[in-house]
């Protein structure tokens, strides 16, 4: 499968979750694992450009598809992706555990709604849990990311 533009060997075991394959086999630990049943949103990645939960997919299912993880948004040495820059500017994170999942969900949200309304923002981030920020700064970061993406 192609991950962040590079080809990788397929997983050895059909039981391997995509989230574990990314972290343990490929070494891309930016994708975080929280609940492992699709509720927390920390493991969100892009599959062919659309955000999905990597803990609710078997790695073998991603064979032949394009996977983008948080590491793929801004390769080393490149400026931050607009969504990352916005989270940085607006203090959209504290401990950072939920952040990769939020960023990937927001990338998907802005692809669907480049100029999101407040309601669309709430709808777009409702599937991700953050226990630090209280979400106000994350909402601001989404608005800022939309501005930066223009």
């Amino acid at each position: 499968m192609r991950i962040n533009g590079f080809d990788h060997y397929p997983p050895q075991d059909a039981r391997r979750l995509l989230s574990d394959y990314l972290r343990h086999d490929v070494g891309l630990t930016g994708t975080h694992v929280g609940c492992e049943h699709g509720v927390c949103g920390c493991c969100t990645i892009l599959l062919n450009g659309a955000p999905v939960r990597s803990c609710l997919m078997l790695a073998v299912q991603a064979e032949g598809h394009e996977v983008t993880t948080i590491e793929g948004l801004a390769p080393d040495g490149e400026p931050l992706h607009a969504v990352q820059q916005a989270f940085h500017e607006c203090h959209g994170l504290q401990c950072g555990f939920c952040t990769p999942g939020f960023v990937m969900s927001v990338v998907g949200l802005l692809a669907q709604h480049p100029h999101p309304t407040d309601e669309e923002i709430d709808e777009g981030i409702a599937g991700n849990l953050c226990r630090c920020t209280g979400y106000a700064s994350i909402r601001r970061a989404v608005r800022r990311a939309a501005e930066l993406s223009r």
């Binding site: 969100t44 599959l47 659309a50 999905v52 939960r53 609710l56 969900s105 998907g108 709808e123 599937g127």
Partner: peptide
Amino acid sequence: VAHRVIRNR
């Protein structure tokens, strides 16, 4: 149904 990220799949 759930959230958009879930509905994508």
